[in-house]
């Protein structure tokens, strides 16, 4: 029986009275790339730290290749590549020194992969990492991970501090490396558009620990945005009901509506359901209108993400 690279079982974690997860359970299948998405403060970084084994949850388990994440064996650690937020590495090393240091620990080290990426920088091998920009450093860190060739990669906010060019370079190299389907990746990022380029599944985290796992394509095709012009909403009572719903945090605002956003001249309604089902919800509030007043709006992934999680 193949063990999933990562499994989260009945996770509970809180910071004081604020509950981050309650009975969170997830299975990450091998060979897939998962994007961990959610608003600030829902616990993405906390989950990443628990997965990395640097934070012990108050209850529940997190397993990496069967080992408890906070008691992971050295052999299992060799199969896991970590990218820490802000592309942390030992700044006092030079380009060559850091590669020589890391290579000693991994028997399957692939030196040529590191230099393939790092040589693009055009810097001498004795160039210190502390002298590099964030983007240049990200290349070094990615090169080290690629040289390690781990089965599982956990990338905590790989895009932080990178401009579009370095982000694209990072994603392209990663995608090239992952195309054999032998690697599992869990990553977080605030740059949603990049997810389109290589993520298979998305894991949406919401406040209170609610989680949704779905394929990226399925999410993109099944999640809709409908626009309701403001002048179609007659009556102050209805207007205020809609405004109140818009103020709520996203998450089953109504039976078929995940989120409702208020704009100056229109309302936006986000749903996995059909237009007719959304209209039925609105009729339940008192809206009397025929179908043509709801128009579907095309969304890119970022629009869909914001629509799903809410602007605030």
């Amino acid at each position: 029986m193949t063990v999933n690279p990562v499994s989260v079982e009945h996770l509970f974690h809180s910071y004081g009275p604020k509950i981050i997860y309650q009975d969170l359970s997830l299975e990450f299948e091998p060979g897939k790339i998962y994007g961990l998405l959610g608003k600030n403060g829902v616990g993405k970084t906390t989950l990443i730290k628990i997965l990395m084994g640097f934070l012990k949850p108050k209850a529940g388990f997190c397993r990496i290749f069967g080992d408890l994440a906070n008691a992971i064996s050295p052999a299992t650690r060799a199969r896991v590549g970590l990218l820490f937020e802000r592309h942390l590495t030992y700044n006092f090393f030079s380009i060559a020194q850091v590669e020589r240091f890391m290579a000693r620990f991994y028997p399957k080290w692939k030196r040529e992969r590191y230099y393939e990426l790092v040589d693009l920088l055009g810097l001498p091998s004795n160039h210190k990492i502390s002298w590099m920009s964030e983007g240049q450093r990200s290349q070094v860190v990615l090169g080290l991970i690629l040289a390690q060739d781990p089965e599982l990669l956990i990338l905590d906010d790989y895009s932080m501090g990178l401009d579009a060019g370095y982000r694209r370079l990072f994603v392209d190299y990663l995608r090239e490396h992952l195309k054999d389907g032998q690697h599992t990746v869990i990553l977080t990022s605030h740059v949603i558009q990049d997810m389109n380029r290589f993520v298979d599944d998305v894991v949406f985290l919401r406040r209170g620990g609610e989680v949704t796992v779905t394929g990226l394509e399925a999410f993109s095709s099944n999640f809709h945005c409908f626009r309701l012009p403001r002048d179609m909403v007659k009556g102050e009572v209805l207007q205020s009901k809609l405004a109140k719903l818009a103020c709520q945090s996203a998450g089953r605002t109504l039976e078929h509506i995940i989120n409702l956003e208020e704009h100056a001249s229109y309302f936006e309604l986000f749903t996995f359901n059909t237009k007719e089902e959304v209209l039925r919800d609105l009729e339940g509030l008192g809206l009397k209108a025929s179908p043509p007043i709801l128009t579907e709006v095309a969304m890119d992934l970022e629009d869909a993400f914001v629509g799903y999680t809410g602007r605030h």
């Binding site: 050295p74 052999a75 650690r77 942390l88």
Partner: peptide
């Protein structure tokens, strides 16, 4: 330097 940004995690993740 190991404590700054918790860089020690890099070493702690090494397979030993």
């Amino acid at each position: 330097p190991e404590m700054r940004d918790e860089r020690l995690r890099i070493s702690l993740h090494l397979p030993c």
